[in-house]
Design a protein around this nucleic acid. Structure first.
Lengths: 335, 335
DNA sequence: ATGAAAGCGCTAACAG
DNA sequence: CTGTTAGCGCTTTCAT
């Protein structure tokens, strides 16, 4: 146990070289003789030297920390969505040796990610103000999963409408006509877009839009139950298929349907959205729309890093297309 | 849009004072005349000046970032446990103006939280090596939710055995004799301790321990189902009450019991562990053992901060006692 | 109450 | 290939 932390000076002294040379081996500069390099490495190991990151950042004039701000609304962490984003961002940061500064925000509260070279906003529901402020401070931003058309900010989002259309098309392709939907929160962009995709999907298949086949949910399991309840109350006019705006809701619908004695997919087809792995382990595996959440998050870090590092200048504006995953929860309408 | 970021020099120039004075107002030192303070504040606002955190840290010689390392095993984020820890740590960091550096670890991989004044380990299942390494580097550590007796490290943990005893005592108090348990993963300390608490709880009430009333689960919903399945196969000898090592499993047991036509709590009493809010919204609200997870996480940050700041020197070794929360999922045995 | 000056630990020209 | 020398932006004695 040494008393003090070793500094670059101590290393230089022990290795019998200048601090510059030490700095060079730390930063993997090629022009160091093998002999010196070896000595420096020995000294580093011996003294258990770790460069002081603050000093490095200060000297380099750049900041290798990425801030991740997530909305703090209750339940956020229970969404598969949030988790995948965190995993993806975390993974990329690790690979690129970036610090990940995590920040759960109230939305309206001013941001305090003092020490971050760039910031990723995992959602924009309530943080418009924060994004504007960050932008104004000249800190590079990246918005995930929300296309922001009226702000000059980088984003990577998913084509939610397209995904919903794919879900409806799949159902229609099986022969369903009475296709209902339980929407996600309509104040969220994803909820809104998925609902619009549902409608346009119907249109594309020349199917009529029926107001009573819509239940406005909010991504909660509770609302999914209520949605199915409403649909079942329609009696013989009840839908034969349901597009749920999230796997979580889809799974709950399946559970509830079974409680009510309906067989899935025989009596009711269900498709979800997310590709939440839970959908694999349910009694009936779930047909769903896969979003490349993890990849999206990783990519956000990469792009942001390129921007902060000055390697990229143009705006990043990507829209990723989701993918239909067919499993067991859909069948041709029973009768 | 200014071209460069304003530095303390710019502020000093505009305010017509020395940089020292600017530094003083930034750090809320009292001895600054009202006039100067006002001028400096004006300049700060006008130039949109933000102190460079790296420079501050370097000059102050301390590091106000806390690292949070969590095990990266699949599903970690779906546990109520992990979420509450993150929330609590996040909240405390925010209140104390500390950066929260988030790190999902592989356990065996060497830690790379270069820039952190102190580190919180949210679990110790596989990071013993990392903890030892961190300790060896002289970085203050804090282990959450695991009592580590063979390592000289600070920890705040929960008395899992005591909690399990409380659950069993409650059930026994209602008159149950055939009390089963679905354990958590027995390789985890919590799983182990809760199981031991189950056994000692039985002992305290002079109830016999019955091997066939034990199902070794792993905290997954799947294992909970399997556990109940096993118990039901016992026919008329089946238990009348089940202590599940997590709310998640308890909830799944209730669902599955209902699917099998059993009424809860009439035909089967269930008590969980965690006080997961989901337990409130299920068809039958869940009686459970409340762990002060959020508080524990917050406290960990506080203590760690005190240690890093030199305000605390002795080791922190707290064991928190959980609490029984009685709701609707238990009743006197039916017959 | 205020400022000058000396670092904090490291990087990056610039010479050699 | 290596060392010298300025800083990076801020805090902190120490005088005044």
């Amino acid at each position: 146990m040494s008393t003090k932390k070793a500094s670059i000076n101590d290393v230089a002294k022990r290795a019998g070289v200048s601090i510059t040379t030490v700095s060079r081996v730390i930063n993997n500069v090629a022009s160091v003789s093998d002999k010196n390099r070896a000595q420096v490495e020995e000294a580093i190991a011996h003294l258990n030297f770790k460069p002081n990151v603050s000093a490095q950042r200060l000297a380099k004039g750049l900041n290798t920390a990425v801030g991740l701000v997530m909305p703090g609304y209750p339940g956020i962490f229970h969404s598969f969505y949030a988790i995948e984003i965190i995993r993806g961002v975390g993974h990329a940061c690790e690979a690129l040796h970036l610090d990940l500064i995590f920040h759960i925000t109230k939305g309206y509260a001013p941001l305090n990610i003092s020490n971050a070279g760039g910031i990723i906003f995992a959602d924009i529901i309530e943080n418009r103000k924060q994004i504007e402020a960050t932008l104004a401070e000249g800190i590079p931003c990246m918005v995930i999963n929300n296309r922001v058309d009226d702000l000059k900010v980088n984003f990577i989002a998913i084509d939610n409408a397209k995904g919903a259309e794919m879900a409806v098309a799949h159902l229609a392709g099986l022969g369903h006509v009475k296709i209902a939907t339980v929407t996600g929160g309509l104040q969220t962009q994803s909820g809104q877009h998925r609902f619009e995709g549902y409608k346009s999907g119907l249109g594309q298949k020349k199917l009529p839009f029926n107001e009573s086949y819509v239940y406005e949910g909010d991504y909660s399991r509770r609302s999914a139950r209520q949605g199915l309840e409403k649909f079942l109350s329609l009696g013989k006019d009840r839908p034969t298929a349901i597009f749920a705006a999230s796997d979580d809701m889809a799974l709950e619908i399946i559970n509830f349907a079974m409680e009510r004695g309906l067989k899935v997919p025989k009596d009711l087809s269900v498709v979800g959205f997310d590709d939440n792995p839970a959908g694999l382990y349910s009694s009936v595996s779930l047909t769903t729309i896969r979003q490349p959440l993890f990849k999206m998050a990783e990519e956000a870090v990469r792009q942001l890093n390129a921007i902060v590092g000055g390697r990229r200048h143009s705006a990043v504006q990507q829209i990723l297309v989701p993918e239909l995953v067919v499993r067991e929860s859909c069948a041709v309408p029973g009768v």
